[in-house]
Design a protein around this nucleic acid. Structure first.
Lengths: 229, 229
DNA sequence: ATGTGACTGAAAGTCCGTC
DNA sequence: CGACGGACTTTCAGTCACA
């Protein structure tokens, strides 16, 4: 396949995983919507300056645009997705002894969901001193209905920055288990803006949780467990 | 820095590591020499089709052009480099019991050097049957005078393909320790052409040799040893 | 919300040189 | 070998209206 078509397909994939329209990507990249449309269809020999703009709008490195994992182009954010209430998809647990606040999310996140998590978790944190806690986050089940990983939509990513800034007051750092290399890339951007020292891990379940336990200097966690198979 | 300058600098680096001139790169990529010059100087907003041509000419993936490790732009292939005779930079050892043929090279390689290795190693192999041996190659010391890794020049890469085709008759597969991600990329191209099933490893000494021993199902090798520190 | 054809000015890219 | 320039052709970026 021609590199122009491949690249176009790639944008389409990543855009679908982010749950945004061509119009939104147009706004975020500063490129014309109909121009982006023709790029996605492989009809343009796009230049490096515009490649950079698109990568920035999708919050990935340029290299990831070419060598990264591939996805389907099915839109991740579907209305049906929200039939299961967020309350049932959001779990959290405080380990008072080890000073670890763990939480996990499955499925997709809206901006409201982030604000809800914010209020709940800040309520817990407020019982602690500055930088006393460590966050342990599990995003591995943040998947769309098609079973493929979903990342934050741009709207959600912006709320996540504010959310993380709040958490930063009580939490020294964060360890986050990711659902894809894409999410690692995106969270690198988000945490760079929020300022929270964060490690984003992606890989096989066993090795990724082993690595997280190692970083946290613990042997287990009641919420985020190693699979026993 | 502007993406156009960054990309230009990147080409210059990789070209220097490969030891080829703008003229040679022009010939191999099919792009005009004066055009390549202006791209390297960051004066062009190069398009994706030409980016692909350059990546192919440098034998790396497009993603590696953007996210890969960085080098100085000092030319790797200097005349002085060859003051130490190849005989002293080429070591080999046959493990008759484990059926492993190991060899290592330090410094740069010329086309003649490859032909010399070919004759020596084929002499050894001819005592064995088809696919009876396994190759274990150490390229970690293939460095230029500036101490930075060097890869095969295109001329050498072509001879390496022929060399490997010969070896393929007696060797089932090859494990190669590399000096850089760049060399991994390049050897992926070379071995794809020669057809020899090959694994190219790059990383910290301990982990890379450990991995190699694991792949070879051995606990040690007289030529290629783990550092004891 | 996206696909498409048509259009223009700007820039990419080629080919010829000189230094 | 590489920087740089001039003159030339081709193509991309960017924007429409319309389906």
């Amino acid at each position: 396949m021609d590199i122009r078509s491949e690249f176009g397909q790639r944008i389409r994939e990543l855009r679908a995983r982010s749950g945004i329209s061509q119009e939104m990507l147009s706004f975020r990249s500063g490129l014309d919507r109909s121009y982006l449309s023709s790029v996605e269809r492989g009809e343009r020999n796009i230049s490096i300056v515009n490649i950079e703009k698109i990568a920035a709008a999708l919050q990935v490195s340029i290299g990831y645009m070419f060598d990264g994992e591939r996805f389907s182009a099915t839109p991740a954010y579907q209305p049906k997705e929200f039939t299961i209430p967020f309350l049932e998809r959001f779990k959290y647990k405080l380990d008072n002894e080890k000073k670890i606040l763990a939480f996990s999310v499955s499925g997709l996140l809206t901006g409201n969901d982030v604000e809800y998590m914010d209020s709940i978790l800040m309520g817990i944190c407020s019982a602690f001193g500055k930088g006393e806690l460590t966050l342990f986050v599990d995003h591995r089940e943040m998947k769309a209905l098609d079973g493929e990983p979903a990342v934050y939509s741009p709207e959600v990513a912006e709320k996540a920055v504010l959310f993380q800034r709040n958490l930063l007051r009580y939490n020294r750092r964060a360890i986050v288990l990711c659902n894809s290399e894409f999410q690692v890339q995106q969270l690198n951007h988000v945490t760079q803006e929020s300022g929270i020292p964060s490690t984003h891990l992606f890989g096989q379940d066993k090795e990724v949780i082993g690595r997280a336990y190692q970083l946290l200097n613990i042997n287990g966690n009641e919420l985020i467990k190693m699979q026993t198979d």
